[in-house]
Simulated assay, not measured.
Amino acid sequence: MQPAPHIITLELHPEAMAFFNQLRREYYPANRVKAHLTLFYRLPADADRLVTSLEAITARSPFTMQVSGLQPYPNGLAYTVISPELLALHQLLQQEWAPWLIPRDRQPLRPHITIMNNVTAFKAQRIHEKLQADFRPFEVTANGISSWRYRRGPWEPVGEYPFRNEL
């Protein structure tokens, strides 16, 4: 059996994670994966430079990002995130990991946090309208990066790489 691929996500401040996880439990209860902002969807399990790269970039400081709106999808809903620093970090990792990237991971990052997916279009629209009525942009803090193994169900944690403020 081939080892499971890596998924790389951005870790948010615990208060932000609690907010997004609560929404996810309420509107996407069948899903067993917690709220997340995916940076890379599929990296090989044996990518030796993966851990070295993650450890090297975590010397940076945590940074603030803007949650700018709600993004409806035909069968889901996500919060959109704006951060020039996040886009620069993603591009740096794309360059570092270029030999291993699948086409989806070679594309520019469109940061978002999905709170609902695989529901009816009616339900997605109804929840979008409900949440949009009270939405005001807000800030969240990026605290680090996590690596996971995808095993066709709940993700298995591999490593956490908190930003250490050493720059």
Rank of each mutant, 00 (worst) to 15 (best):
P157I: 10
Y150M: 11
D48V: 07
F138Y: 13
D105A: 06
P154I: 13
G153M: 11
I113Y: 01
P14I: 15
L86M: 11
P72V: 07
P29S: 09
A88W: 06
L89D: 00
L93I: 06
I145D: 00
I115G: 01
R126I: 07
P111R: 02
S146I: 05
Y79M: 05
A30W: 12
Q22F: 14
P108G: 01
V81Y: 03
T114M: 06
Y73R: 07
A59S: 12
A121N: 12
E129V: 06
I57A: 04
F135V: 09
R60N: 09
P154E: 14
P3M: 09
P111C: 04
L109A: 01
H13K: 14
Y79P: 01
A124N: 06
Q91L: 03
T52H: 15
E55T: 06
V67T: 04
P72E: 04
P29L: 09
V119F: 05
R24C: 09
L70A: 03
T80M: 10
L23K: 13
W155I: 05
N118K: 15
Q94L: 02
A133H: 09
F20Q: 05
F138E: 04
P5L: 04
F138K: 10
A121I: 10
S147E: 08
Q91S: 04
Y161D: 04
A98H: 05
D48F: 09
S53Q: 10
Y161A: 07
L37F: 13
M17K: 15
L167C: 12
D46T: 11
E129G: 08
S68Y: 11
L93E: 00
A59F: 05
P137C: 09
L109H: 01
A16P: 14
K130T: 12
Q132A: 13
A142L: 07
V140C: 14
L131F: 10
F40K: 02
A56D: 10
E156A: 14
P44M: 08
A124H: 02
K123S: 13
G159A: 12
R24A: 06
R42E: 11
S146Y: 02
E26V: 11
G76R: 00
K123H: 15
A4M: 10
Q94P: 03
V67Q: 00
P111H: 02
S61N: 12
Y79G: 01
P84R: 10
P162K: 10
M1F: 12
Y79Q: 03
F40W: 07
R106E: 02
A78D: 02
P14Y: 14
Y79T: 03
L43F: 05
L93N: 00
I113S: 02
L92A: 06
R110I: 07
R126L: 13
L93T: 02
P103F: 01
L23Y: 15
L93W: 01
V140D: 02
F19I: 13
T38P: 03
E85I: 06
P62M: 08
N165R: 13
R24H: 14
E156V: 15
H112C: 08
